[in-house]
Design a protein around this nucleic acid. Structure first.
Lengths: 226, 226
DNA sequence: TTTTACGGTTACGATTTTATTACATTAAAA
DNA sequence: TTTTAATGTAATAAAATCGTAACCGTAAAA
């Protein structure tokens, strides 16, 4: 699943240069030419916003504030011609994550985007072992223990289990599991996931119910409850 | 508990100015005057490192690499007199989170530190959930809890409830509900919605009245009023 | 009163989704 | 090489979910 980035700038040329380069780097870029359009196009699935400070209908700061007040925590990088200290501080104070002055270097922008997205994912999961009541998953040694006994999982089984268990209770669609684990190879049936889940459950034995299916959605790893 | 920040710079004056100002901002600052000393003083409880690029014994980049290879994901902000593009890109490529050129503004540094630490905490808890008095709707786990007890909803029921609850008090026409949830398939009777609503209400039990109908218009999720 | 419009409910067959098994193919190990 | 394990696909069975029609009830309109 490529990261989606929303580029907001009323200068069409800049917007297109940026989104072209973002696409080249493997991101899914989308343009908005006004704050109003950005609000309309923004969805929770966006990973980051590149936001011009000066725009016709609404200042970029205003848009950032609006998003933050609406509860969004999407990372925001401000792009701007203004580079006085006060402008920058305003950018950070309305919840911005970075502030880059024009004329900017594309490489710098790409590096800063990468740094923020990296920080996002690193902050989320930095555990190398997932520990639950009866199950221990060691992401480094690729080992799974149930009540102290090692369980022999194949690579695919281990990957699926790790993915589900590293976001307990969250439901993963089969489509997403495939996208996340089969990164390259594209032609995999969703039924394949079912088969792996069946095998996984068999090996998990008494703990099989840790993985449950949510009809119409996919599979999840349940946080064991008392 | 104050955030601990490690300041690494072989210029004692800079180190002290920074740590003084960090302390003023409520952080717990510690100084290291060489990469070697930094490695010795660094602990996993540090929340962030301010790192000078040019130091006698080891370049800041080298220290950052060492830390990353050792598995640390602590945020690193580079401070530097070098401000060529390549230096900056090196900073990001060794796992840096930000790159600030000297002479730097203290306010800018403080703002950037704050932004990164904010991002750290925000990134960890990004559950999307709708919370009301007795009802909790978790959009990730696709779960609905009423007074702490899980309620088993089918996919369609969950989708309808989420849709209504994410715009409380707004009345949705049956036609719109169908358009929004059945994105592709086209021929669904509006009466079908009624049936789903009935089932939903039954499962919501005591909270059934959260969903009310507006004759001639459609359905709505009522904001519970004390 | 009767009529009409609308929402609410139920039952049931149809459809979709999930689980399991068997088999073919590929990759890895002996 | 032979043997074994791992993987993906297809077929089938089982379970869960869905959609519709028919019917009921209520309230407002005629």
């Amino acid at each position: 699943m490529a990261e989606k980035i929303l580029v907001v700038d009323d200068d069409k040329d800049i917007c297109e240069i940026l989104s072209f380069n973002l696409a080249n780097e493997g991101y899914e870029a989308e343009c908005a030419y006004s704050a109003e359009e950005a609000l309309r196009k923004f969805t929770p699935s966006h990973s980051l916003i590149l936001l011009d400070v000066m725009m016709g209908d609404m200042s970029g700061y205003k848009l950032a504030e609006t998003l933050r007040h609406a509860g969004s925590t999407v990372p925001i990088i401000f792009l701007t011609a203004k580079d006085t200290e006060n402008d920058m501080l305003t950018g950070f104070s309305v919840g911005g994550d970075d502030y880059i002055s024009k004329p900017f270097s594309l490489k710098e922008i790409m590096a800063r985007i990468k740094a923020i997205l990296r920080r996002m994912t690193v902050a989320k999961e930095k555990n190398s072992r997932l520990v639950f009541d009866h199950v221990l998953i060691d992401l480094d040694s690729k080992e799974v223990m149930i009540d102290g006994n090692a369980v022999a999982l194949t690579k695919t089984e281990f990957e699926i289990l790790s993915l589900l268990a590293s976001n307990p209770d969250r439901v993963f669609r089969r489509e997403d599991i495939i996208d996340l684990l089969w990164k390259d190879a594209l032609y995999t049936t969703e039924r394949t996931i079912d088969v792996h889940i069946t095998r996984l459950r068999k090996k998990l034995g008494a703990q099989a119910s840790l993985i449950s299916s949510r009809s119409g959605y996919g599979y999840r790893f349940n946080i064991p409850r008392g």
